[in-house]
Design a protein around this nucleic acid. Structure first.
Length: 441
RNA sequence: CGGGGCAUAGCGCAGCCUGGUAGCGCAUCUGCUUUGGGAGCAGAGGGUCGCAGGUUCGAAUCCUGCUGCCCCGACCA
């Protein structure tokens, strides 16, 4: 992608409305623009990251056996009356009326709708277990939206819903999502800690929040230091197998959010292992049994011929919120530092002297080779000064910068810089290309 | 929803107290110079001063009402 043809409206100055670093940097880097309180447009650079995050979430859901579908953003109030949540949900739910004066709402979540889909189609235990998910925009009319996409009113969320014949099987479904989440956050370059959590308005009796530790986190959290270094489930994880061992490894050490905190249990840890920090919730999983299937009559016939409410769980990941969390966890004074897995482009190529035959030719050749190797490249072919180009690349946080200048060009050399560490290295053209292809693979 | 603050050019701000028809920096456009860490000089364009009333010869400025946004708290994926 040529920067001269791209839409990257960066800001040199901090917008005054943005208080925390991720919000500031997303605005400055031209990723988002606010439309109204808690509602954002996603500009090309931000959208690329959002899609990368969604892609990883999707791949890990699929790997864990969940099936993707897509439910609408607008729902009928009638469904919510069946579960009793139409009145319970309160002012957070955005209520809408259509031209026929029918009551609709902009969905804050989809338990009722998925339960409706399930009850209309599934009758037998033979069709279970089933886990359906979608990645869709949600709306919660927060009293006070803030922190950019970290607490927006409109937000992109992955929510999965599991259906099982009995509690034991439902527990297995829960464990699969638990493990899928550990893998997902790891692939995103984050350390997420599962913590026992309050179930809130979703309800249920088994629940974990996945929390990223960051100074700007919204809630106080407590955990055992050991959790920060535990092994994560690998690519060879068999999701059909019993995962209770992995889950137990991750749930035995102490970890809780403030609402669930047990000060005595925490104090019993050796002092060196007591981690008290701020956390950002990026995922939340629940098992809630028959809370929705009972009132909404989602029943299956078991092997014994008896009809019973299906056991359900739901599993959310805040996809748009994750972008804020990623930046909170990975940035410096100069800007964002994207993990390789979600970066909007793998490489930022800077031509220090566009119009110079030698640098133009070398840069064009490098773009072609990197792109044919499957890397994405943002090629700064503009006639800005060197300093401005470096500052822009640092701000938008691409993992690698490749610099082509007239002096190096004369010797067949270019420079590569790793954004995260600032390390620079001067290499021959082939060596530089091979290095980036190899490192990004 | 309680408390506080802000609204003037695309962005960041001054002007308001003490009314006289709008200014600075960055950005944008033109020209010349410059060219490895957000360049310099010269020039240019860009504003219903959030909206609606009121006071006044005259309102960005004073008064009233409204709207939007931000911060703290309570609440929350």
């Amino acid at each position: 992608m040529l920067l001269s043809k791209y839409f990257l409206p960066i800001l040199k100055e901090d917008p005054k409305e943005a208080e925390i670093v991720s919000h500031r940097l997303m605005l400055r880097a031209g990723m988002i623009r606010q439309q109204t309180a808690g509602i954002y447009s996603w500009l090309p650079l931000g959208l690329r990251v959002l899609e990368n995050v969604a892609r990883i979430v999707r791949e890990e859901q699929n790997r864990a056996g969940a099936l993707e579908l897509l439910m609408p953003t607008i729902q009928s109030a009638d469904l919510w009356r069946e579960s009793g949540r139409y009145d319970d949900y309160g002012k957070e739910m955005l209520r809408i009326e259509d031209r026929h004066e029918r009551e609709l709402l902009f969905g804050p979540t989809n338990e009722e709708m998925i339960t409706d889909i399930f009850r209309n189609t599934v009758r037998s235990y033979r069709d279970l277990p089933l886990n359906l998910y979608h990645i869709q925009w949600k709306f919660r009319d927060e009293v006070r939206p803030r922190f950019g996409v970290m607490r927006g009113r409109e937000f992109l969320m992955k929510d999965a819903y599991s259906f099982d014949v009995d509690a034991e099987s439902a527990r297995h479904a829960y464990n699969r999502m638990f493990v899928a989440y550990l893998r997902t956050f790891k692939r995103l370059g984050l350390t997420a800690i599962p913590m026992r959590a309050d179930t809130g308005p979703i309800g249920g009796d088994l629940s974990h929040e996945f929390i990223i530790l960051a100074e700007t986190g919204e809630s106080q959290v407590f955990c055992d230091q050991d959790l920060l270094t535990l092994d994560l489930p690998g690519d060879d994880t068999d999701f059909a197998a019993d995962l209770s061992g992995v889950v137990s490894n991750w749930t035995t050490p102490y970890a809780a959010t403030e609402e669930m905190h047990d000060a005595d249990a925490f104090a019993a840890l050796p002092e060196a292992r007591q981690v008290s920090a701020r956390g950002i919730e990026v995922g939340h999983i629940f098992y809630f049994g028959a809370k929705y299937s009972e009132p909404m009559k989602a029943r299956v016939t078991g092997p014994d011929g008896v009809e019973r409410p299906v056991h359900m769980g739901s599993y959310g990941v805040g996809v748009s919120r994750l972008l804020g969390a990623l930046i909170e966890a990975s940035h410096d004074e100069a800007g964002i530092i994207w993990p390789d897995s979600v970066a909007p482009f793998n490489v930022g190529l800077i031509n220090l002297k566009p119009g110079d035959v030698a640098t133009d030719e070398i840069a064009a050749g490098i773009v072609a080779r990197l792109e044919s190797a499957g890397l994405s490249v943002l090629y700064d072919d503009t006639d800005q000064r060197a300093g401005a180009k470096f500052a822009t690349m640092d701000l938008i946080g691409l993992p690698w910068q490749l610099i082509v200048g007239p002096k190096g060009a004369a010797k067949g050399e270019v420079e590569i810089k790793r954004r995260a560490t600032g390390e620079r290295e001067t290499l021959g053209i082939d060596a530089a290309v091979n290095r980036l292809v190899h490192e990004t693979a």
